[in-house]
């Protein structure tokens, strides 16, 4: 029997944190290795030029707040002391809004935690034109591009702005040393990619532009639109001769995911995954989020628990 949670102290605060590894292919849950490692998410800015109807992030075109590097340094040093970093996701708002800050953030992470720290960056796509301005791009593990439809016009309509199209993504993929750095994130929606057939069309298109991996995410019902158009990846991941399902992971009722490989009609292999988060979140900590407001939280959103208010702790 595993102990689902354990105590973990950070910034002098004792928290109840996740203490097990997700179930892999139906195997029993296993105790987490020591030292305990957790994901740190950095909301670089609250600004995002897009206005997606299904977006759950508290960001937009309004106030431009940016992450304070002094606060980041404090958090990284504390997590280094605890040897607690599993990986870092750089998100927002749109992290490419300030490429200088993005570079400084990456530099700081590597300086404090080392270049082998797993880093991923999420962009709505506008960052692609600046991809080579990232000085240490070679050491960044993945750049996740939100891409909700294979058709350029339909995709842009989801964002409410013009985001780079297929040609721009293809150029970016061809310009980097390893195309596997790019991963597409597609939100499954009934009025978009919401069926097995559309998923295959998406993967065909992804293969054609050189993409090696795509994720299909079940939308969180954050508002009426998202709830009405919500499609579960489980309903469209069906048996198909062009698909090989590989692994699946479960984290009790909190979330689950499933991996697969698609053989496109032109012979390209495209890895894909589906991910779904349950309605009720766990009552224990699975990771940390540092936002531009200088507060380290146990998750996204205002409701998440506060670990440390760095504005108060650093004078």
């Amino acid at each position: 029997m595993i102990e689902k949670t354990t105590a973990f102290t950070i910034f002098g605060k004792e928290l109840c944190v996740k203490n097990y590894k997700c179930s892999h292919n139906g195997c029993p849950y296993m105790q987490k290795d020591r030292p305990l490692k957790m994901q740190l998410s950095l909301k670089l800015t609250s600004y995002c030029g897009a206005s997606c109807r299904f977006c759950s992030a508290a960001c937009g075109k309004g106030i431009k707040e940016f992450l304070n590097l002094k606060y980041l340094e404090t958090v990284l040093n504390e997590m280094k002391r605890l040897n607690a970093v599993r990986g870092i996701s750089i998100t927002g708002g749109e992290p490419f809004t300030d490429i200088g800050l993005l570079n400084e953030t990456i530099e700081m992470i590597f300086d404090i935690l080392g270049v082998w720290t797993e880093i991923s960056i999420n962009t709505n796509g506008i960052g692609l034109k600046d991809i080579h301005k990232i000085k240490r791009l070679k050491y960044v593990d993945t750049v996740h591009i939100s891409r909700h439809h294979y058709d350029d016009k339909r995709n842009s309509s989801y964002f409410g702005i013009d985001v780079p199209g297929s040609e721009a993504i293809k150029e970016a993929v061809e310009s980097v040393y390893d195309p596997r750095i790019f991963v597409l994130n597609c939100l499954l929606l009934a009025d978009g990619i919401g069926s097995s057939k559309e998923m295959k069309n998406y993967l065909e298109w992804a293969g054609d532009i050189g993409i090696k991996k795509a994720g299909f995410i079940t939308a969180m019902p954050v508002n009426d639109y998202a709830a009405k158009n919500r499609v579960s990846y489980k309903d469209i991941f069906v048996v198909d001769e062009a698909i090989l399902y590989t692994d699946r992971f479960e984290d009790f009722e909190y979330c689950n995911c499933r991996d697969g490989i698609y053989a496109s009609s032109s012979g390209r292999m495209v890895e894909f995954y589906g991910r779904e988060t349950g309605y009720g979140g766990p009552d224990f900590v699975r990771g940390f989020v540092l936002g531009p407001d200088g507060v380290l939280r146990t998750g996204y959103g205002e409701k998440a628990g506060i670990v440390a208010d760095l504005k108060r702790e650093i004078v």
């Binding site: 001769e241 062009a242 053989a263 009609s265 012979g267 390209r268 292999m269």
Partner: peptide, 27 residues
């Protein structure tokens, strides 16, 4: 896996199939 490899071979053409199988192996 055998079924998937058969699908790749059946639908592939020329050296593409070898490339596809190598990609699959790498993944």
């Amino acid at each position: 896996l055998i079924r998937f490899v058969e699908h790749i071979v059946k639908n592939g053409s020329g050296y593409n199939t070898e490339k596809s199988l190598k990609e699959l192996r790498d993944i």
